[in-house]
Design a binder for these strands. Structure first.
Lengths: 171, 171
DNA sequence: ATGTATGCAAACCATTTGCAATGAC
DNA sequence: GTCATTGCAAATGGTTTGCATACAT
């Protein structure tokens, strides 16, 4: 027989995020289902960004079985509970991450990989910044460019093109 | 008979963006079609953000007739030619805007409206900023929060709820 | 004349929705 | 027992693709 993991073995009820979610569910008169805690607990094991699909696979791979709709549903609740944030980068599916210290996202337009980097100076700047007739809640800084790996690849490709052109001219 | 506008009457060939696009098409051996110039010329009349659908309607309303695919296609080229930039904000369809001076996007999470605001200090900060192993090309700062209109609405709604609660208690 | 660009309709695919069955309270 | 939640399957909607026709070069 297949052993379905016991949620008790997974959830760390002393974890502040688990607490926050629990409180959130209480406040909104919502039910505490195994699926919701299983999803949250797996999110807590992720560092950085993840997609809905990746999250579902992670949960499934631990012997739980959650439907796509439940993942979407729970992630929505976690955003409302200020535990998660969604990012929509150029030409990729939505990615999520736990709300932590503010940081910048460096997005490589060549390979699509996203690097996160802390920037205390920028955070301080934004902290002090106020806008007219607009009450800021949070912000996202996306920097688009080329990562070092892709920069190297592009350089190499360019060099071989140049060589090829020289060869063509010689013929 | 329907008068199809003459593209010559629409395109300002002295416009630097028109020039740039023209050069871009030349460099890439692409054709200079009426549709492409009609779309660009209408984009030049737009201030701020627009959607594919809005753009198509604008072009159509001037008596041109362009297909959805052509709008997508042309907008893609204009991005490649460094004339347009695409933004994907939380839970909305993609929006485009001409590349101009750097500015911040203030996004109201209540009504979805996006305000643009210049921030020379921030631009200067970013101008000087360098990242490890990452060659920055451009950046987007999205500030999420509540616009003044929605703030007022929310306040009013809250007040009436409070009043209602008081009434309920009195009963 | 050649082959790129257009326009239409169909395909795509992440996300959302409807609804019967399940399970938290 | 009640009703929110789950899971499935179908719907949605912005975007992309395939292909015959039109037209820039």
């Amino acid at each position: 027989m297949t052993t379905v993991p016991n949620i008790e073995d997974f959830v760390d009820s002393t974890n502040p995020f688990v607490r926050r979610f629990s409180d959130y569910l209480d406040e909104h008169g919502m039910r505490k289902t195994t699926e919701r805690y299983a999803i949250l607990q797996h999110i807590l094991n992720i560092n950085g960004l993840f997609t809905i699909e990746g999250l579902q696979q992670l949960v499934d791979s631990d012997g739980f079985r959650v439907s796509r709709s439940t993942v979407y549903n729970t992630v929505e609740l976690l955003m409302d509970a200020q535990i998660l944030r969604r990012h929509v980068f150029e030409g990729m599916q939505a990615q999520y991450e736990r709300i932590t210290l503010p940081h910048t996202h460096l997005i490589c337009t060549s390979c699509g990989r996203v690097k996160e980097t802390r920037d205390p100076n920028f955070a301080a700047f934004m902290n002090a910044r106020r806008y007219n007739a607009f009450n800021a809640d949070h912000y996202s800084l996306y920097v688009y460019g080329t990562c070092s790996t892709c920069a190297r690849k592009l350089k190499r490709a360019k060099q071989s093109t140049t060589k090829k052109n020289k060869r063509d001219k010689q013929l």
